[in-house]
Design a protein around this nucleic acid. Sequence first.
DNA 1: TCAAAAGTGTTGTACATACACCCATGT
DNA 2: ACATGGGTGTATGTACAACACTTTTGA
Lengths: 238, 238
Amino acid sequence: MTTTEASKTTSHSAPILDSITIDCVIFGFNQGSLEVLLVKHADGISKDKWGLPGGWIYTDESTDDAANRLLLALTGIKDIYLEQLRAFSAPDRFPVSRVITIGYYALLKREDWVGLKPGATASEVAWFKVSEVETLIYDHLHILEIGLKRLRRRIKQEPIGFNMLPEKFTLLQLMHLYEEILGYEMDKPNFRRKILRMNLLTALDEKQKDVSHRAAKLYRFNPEVYQKLQQKGFNFEF
Amino acid sequence: MTTTEASKTTSHSAPILDSITIDCVIFGFNQGSLEVLLVKHADGISKDKWGLPGGWIYTDESTDDAANRLLLALTGIKDIYLEQLRAFSAPDRFPVSRVITIGYYALLKREDWVGLKPGATASEVAWFKVSEVETLIYDHLHILEIGLKRLRRRIKQEPIGFNMLPEKFTLLQLMHLYEEILGYEMDKPNFRRKILRMNLLTALDEKQKDVSHRAAKLYRFNPEVYQKLQQKGFNFEF
DNA sequence: TCAAAAGTGTTGTACATACACCCATGT
DNA sequence: ACATGGGTGTATGTACAACACTTTTGA
């Protein structure tokens, strides 16, 4: 669903709210780079320009529901990590009419992404390195920046980075994710100790394969442990 | 301006957006207690019930502008600390029609509050201890909770507590503010050292007056220093 | 045997915590 | 004199940063 403010038509028959939309910053981590999923608009005033995926809100759903529906339609994946950023409401943000958009950001495991879902109406969808995105339609670049800012803050306070990694990962992969998002280098020994001391990771009886060096142990994030620790007042922090 | 979803009428002639409102959690600190400013609805389906102050958005203003306008109308004060919480959008949150509200929270110096501004249309306005608020109209209790949660997180990460204290304050007043908001007791000597070490406070050549014990030194928050430190990568943290 | 990453050990420093204690002032 | 908060000092532990070092494995 690449519907944006430019085209209010929808394939559903449910009534929609006018003057409010959803826009979503979808982050992924690929080959050491933080990426964002963008769609190319097929028609409307922003034809052939890239922007964030978005759409309208049905009258019987919350914005969270709407964002989840849009994500499912675009990726075919359920249960994506999703958090609302905020409302973006500059009066001139959309040139055609007065539309306020609710921004979201989502974290995707790139292994789950299998290309555009069959049947989706998007004309073109692609991943871009966040550092190389320079222009987007409307205020979408601003929304992307706010999303990135939020991601940087969140990843220091909550263990959400795992949502962009495979189920099984090495400590160095995790560290590289942190380095890429936060924009600075870390010390490997210290990173290991710090993350392991939190007891959020389960060490697996499994190692990397097909690497041309000593194979690293694989770990899995343990959400149950995190929930228990949280209740005891534990605070994740990096 | 106590207009809420219940009455769309406005004294202004500017057109407004339907189906979107603003609601604002206004915090204050008084005699050791965290308080919130509520309004009593004069008419509509929620007559005689307390709720958050709120209103509609004009087509030529952002939600930030609208929130500031509403705050000015309600309090007569400009330049109030204000931050957007997020959109609240449950389909059934407002019983009469489908309305999404953008929640804000604001921090007020109680010394600036001089009662209801003359000419305001509110029937009744009052401060309530946050800990004693039990029911509010619509989903306003939920918005209050989210606002409180946000305040608790923010006050640990940014020096915003000063917005609820007089210009000149003592270190113990500041500590009591932190204790009240965060819900736990702190160690006086350690609190002093920690906050002073950050260099965000300017010690004044002035002391408390009319206290029945040794008068404490007064301090003032220095926003310029904070901005400079921020640029150097300094991170406020409690 | 070399490269590359995995993984362990050590040390200094900074800061949080806990608590003992003295100071100033009004009643 | 004593209550009340103002304010300083000090010992202990923990955590982090920096960096040296050993281990494992494929090429």
